[in-house]
Structures are given as C-alpha cells and as structure tokens.
C-alpha cells in the first residue's frame, strides 16, 4: 500500500509536468489538445538520440551520475531535448493549429489535434520502430527504505521527483514574481485585455508552446527513465494528463501540479484493489468523479 503511494507520487510528478503545459495551452488557446502527450514522446526520443550522439562523441560522458542510471550524456541531452521539443511544439502550431485557429472554430482545433497526434505517433513509430528502448541497459538496484512494510525506491525515482519539484518551484517563481509571469497569466485570463495592455498575443502563444513543449520533454524523459520508451507513450499518457488538468481545473497551473499528483497517487492506490489490467480505466473514473463532485476542478473557474 505504501509502495503504491510512493510509486504514485513518482507517476504524479511526470503527469504534473505534462499537465502544466497542457493546461496552459488549453486555457490560452481554448482547445483540448489531444496531441500534447505526443510531445512527451518527442522529448523522450530526442533525448535518446542526443544521448547516443554525445556518448559516441565524448565517451567520458557515459559515466553514470552518482547512484543514478542517468549518465552525464543523458543529462546534457535533457537540455537539448527540451529545446527541440519546445521548437517542435511551436512548429506544429505554425503549421497546423495557427492556421486552423485563424479559419475555424475551437472544435476544429480539437479535431486537428487528433490528426496531429496520430501523425506524430506513427512517424515516431516508423523512425524508431514499434519496439521499446531504454536509456540505460544497466540495472540500477532499488534502495530498500524499509523491510516491513517492504518499501523500495530507485535513486532515479528520487531524482525525478526532486527535479520535477524544482522545475515547478521555478515555474511558481516566474508566475508569481515576474512581469513575464503576470503577462502569461493575464493572457490566459483575458487575451483581449492583455492585448490592450500592450502584451503581444502571438509572442505569448509562442512562449506557451515553448514552455509547454519543454516541460513535456522533461516529463517524457523522466517517464522513459523509470519505464520504457515506446511510440505509445503519447497514447498511454494522454488520458491521465487530461485527467490531471480536469482535476486541477482547466487553466490553473497550480491545479495541474496538484492534479497530476492526485491522479498518479489515486491510480496507483486503486491498483491495490483492482487487477492491474484495469489501470488504463482509472483516469476516466477520476474524471467522472470530478465532474460529479466539482465539475470545474479544484482551482478552476466556471466557464462556458
């Protein structure tokens, strides 16, 4: 039970990172982006490529960092992957979403995002194969935290959690202390008013894609670190990430962070009761529960 809780916290940190980007896009551009989870996949795979590249070019970098399975090469790859994924998100917006936005309704955007997700997922599958990959084939042994009850934690998992919390802390600082953060929140709340206050909308939209893509990349890599990398990352995570945004309330960044942990933890805890085959159903049950009890989420505002 406690093991489930620990696992849930770790899954939660990945979901939170994904949900923060998604909730920002959903709020600012007002559409449910079904292709957001594919950005996690882009992030995970581009880190894989950079990791191989750096390891080949600079063999000393293949040394693992402390007790982690993560190598210096992979750590460096995270930075590059973050940029590549952010730029990919921006590029997808320019190529597809921006044009659909100028032409059609918000629902056409939802639809377009389905198409985009399908294309990305299968292009990734074509390039990297349908099988799974790992960043490191070395087995890192879990640290036994306690024997009764048995509690195992891998150093990678602790690192993931700490890094995720650190990123959220930085996000919090930017949003609550800087005028750039105020501008982002302002555009999310009321784009027209933000514009007449001198904020250039197109720049803010680009920024949101960059930030959302960057966070998704980190989430994707962390997911790959504790699980496997496969073209199905997007398919498997799209619903849990949506659930996290709905739990938190669409548009609330803090809600998305909390929502990610709530979905991660409750899905893991539920597995203590339900057979593990049912885990893909958990996010939907959580969504249903939220819609029944508190439709606008924990921090969401009423919107139509």
């Amino acid at each position: 039970m406690i093991q489930n809780l620990v696992d849930g916290v770790l899954v939660g940190s990945v979901l939170s990172l994904g949900a923060v980007g998604l909730t920002m896009v959903m709020h600012m551009l007002r559409f449910a982006n079904f292709s957001h989870a594919e950005l996690l996949s882009i992030g995970a795979y581009s880190a894989l490529v950079f990791d191989a590249l750096f390891s080949a070019m600079m063999p000393p970098l293949t040394a693992a960092i402390g007790p982690l399975s993560m190598t210096w090469a992979l750590a460096l790859s995270v930075v590059f992957s973050l940029v590549i994924t952010g730029l990919s998100a921006l590029l997808i917006d320019r190529l597809v979403f921006k044009r659909v936005r100028e032409k059609g309704s918000e629902l056409s955007m939802v639809f377009a995002s389905f198409g985009v997700a399908m294309i990305i997922r299968n292009v990734v599958g074509l390039i990297f194969g349908l099988g799974t990959h790992l960043y490191s084939k070395d087995i890192v042994f879990a640290v036994v935290l306690s024997r009764d009850p048995l509690l195992l934690v891998k150093p990678d998992q602790v690192f993931t959690l700490v890094a995720a919390l650190l990123i959220m802390l930085i996000m919090h600082f930017v949003l609550s202390r800087t005028t750039l953060g105020y501008s982002l929140r302002a555009v999310a709340e009321n784009p027209t008013l933000a514009q007449v206050n001198g904020i250039r909308l197109s720049h803010m939209i680009a920024l949101v894609w960059l930030v959302g893509g960057g966070l998704a990349a980190v989430a994707g890599i962390f997911y790959g670190l504790s699980n496997q990398i496969s073209p199905m990352i997007g398919r498997d995570l799209v619903l849990p990430i949506f659930a996290a945004t709905i739990v938190g309330g669409i548009g609330s960044i803090y809600g998305a962070v909390l929502g990610g942990f709530i979905v991660g933890i409750s899905a893991s805890l539920a597995l203590a009761i339900l057979p593990s085959g049912y885990s893909p159903s958990m996010p939907f049950l959580i969504i249903l529960a939220v819609l029944l009890i508190r439709p606008n989420g924990l921090f969401g505002e009423e919107q139509t």
Binding site: A32, E106, L239, F242, G277, P283, F284
Partner: peptide, 27 residues
Amino acid sequence: LTLRLRHDYLAIATFGIAVTFENIMRN
C-alpha cells in the same frame, strides 16, 4: 455530466469512455 460545461470536457470525457470501454471489454 459534460454538456453543461466547456465544450472540450465532452471531447475529453468521450475520449476517456472509449479508452475505458475497450479496457473493460479486454479485461
């Protein structure tokens, strides 16, 4: 549950029910 809310809730909930339906039928 969803038709009173912002339009993308329906999109997400219907997507979710499809995933869940398949999952339950499989298990």
